[in-house]
């Protein structure tokens, strides 16, 4: 049967097509991740994917919704991948599972499933983990080129599932605090910016290794822009505001404030700019609203990174701005054709 009423034509597009393109756009980032930190991230991705699909299926069943269209729409996988990419790549298996479960079951399905979640599910999962298990969340592996000891994939699996390290190795040998964390601690100890940045973990743009991953995310983001999956508003406003604040303070006191490039290429800034803050469901819909939303995340990210209690502020910045979305949308309605401003 053709459509009941006009229009009878429609563009060849679907929710699952959009989600598949988002997943595809994440592939360069994942490849860079594997190259920099080793293949442990693939285990996290797999764990998160399976958990997301199983929990989504169970919740759909409980809610009496059809399984097939919603499992195939790909939105659960996007949430799972974004969360896995935000977690330390050698995180214990239960951390990944608990985070994903919370994201899918509570943040997404309990709010009504696809299209109805007011908060970004991956960031809800991340925030819950960060508050509940701060130690596990900050154990990041050093990039392979800096690591004192390299773990084979089997060793990584043993560590992820059993917290067992090869004999003679301690946790400190494979993990370190993140550069954002280090920067914060060192600044508290009144070390100068130049001294801090001289440490090997800091790279040319941001952090050693991390900047490559960030660059790969940027590449994926360009693909999403080209495919018109996202619009430029949120990434430009977010990265622009983050860079603006960082530049301003860096110019005033370069010894205490990191420069704009460091902020853009560290932590989850690039991932957030193109993949997280651009989530349509939990973001605003008007062009002006998207600019405000992105700029707000930029401000909050910088503030949390600079003065807050957590090394990276992306997740909380996104969640705080999610709260503002209905207000932003209501006050940024564009002028309708034939109406005065």
């Amino acid at each position: 049967m053709m459509a009941m009423a006009s229009p009878y034509l429609s563009e060849q597009t679907s929710v699952s097509m959009i989600m598949r393109k988002v997943l595809l756009a994440l592939v360069p980032g994942i490849a860079a991740y594997v190259w920099v930190y080793g293949s442990g991230i693939l285990v996290s991705l797999l764990l998160a994917s399976v958990t997301a699909l199983v929990s989504e299926a169970v919740m759909l069943k409980l809610r009496g919704r059809p399984l097939r269209p919603f499992l195939l729409d790909g939105s659960a996988l996007v949430t799972a991948w974004l969360l896995a990419l935000a977690l330390p790549p050698i995180a214990p298996w239960w951390l990944v599972v608990v985070g994903t479960l919370f994201a899918i079951v509570v943040a997404k399905q309990l709010y009504g499933g696809l299209g109805y979640n007011p908060f970004n599910p991956a960031m809800v999962g991340y925030a819950v983990l960060l508050i509940s298990f701060p130690v596990a969340m900050t154990q990041w592996p050093a990039p392979l080129e800096l690591a004192q000891a390299k773990l084979s994939l089997l060793d990584q699996l043993r560590y992820i599932f059993g917290r067992v390290l090869p004999s003679g190795l301690t946790v400190d040998a494979i993990s370190s605090a993140t550069p954002l964390d280090t920067l914060k601690t060192q600044l508290k100890l009144h070390h100068g910016m130049a001294d801090i940045m001289a440490a090997p973990m800091f790279g040319t743009l941001g952090t050693k290794g991390g900047e490559i991953v960030a660059g790969a995310y940027l590449l994926g983001g360009v693909y999403l822009l080209w495919q018109r999956i996202i619009t430029w508003h949120v990434p430009v406003a977010f990265l622009g505001m983050l860079a603006l604040l960082a530049s301003g303070c860096h110019l005033i006191d370069a010894d205490r404030y990191a420069g704009p490039l460091f902020h853009l290429f560290s932590g989850a800034a690039m991932l957030c700019a193109f993949f997280i803050a651009t989530d349509p469901v939990s973001g605003p819909t008007t062009p002006k609203g998207k600019l405000i939303f992105g700029a707000g995340i930029g401000i909050l990210t910088w503030v949390i990174r600079t003065w807050g209690g957590y090394p990276d502020g992306v997740a909380f910045a996104v969640l705080l701005m999610n709260i503002c979305v209905p207000l932003i949308d209501a006050y940024t309605q564009p002028r309708v054709f034939g109406h005065e401003k």
């Binding site: 034509l9 679907s14 269209p69 696809l114």
Partner: peptide, 15 residues
């Protein structure tokens, strides 16, 4: 000429 429309999914506010 006018393929049947797939079942509607929820709005994802893609705008």
């Amino acid at each position: 000429l006018f393929p049947p429309q797939p079942l509607p999914m929820p709005c994802i506010r893609c705008a």
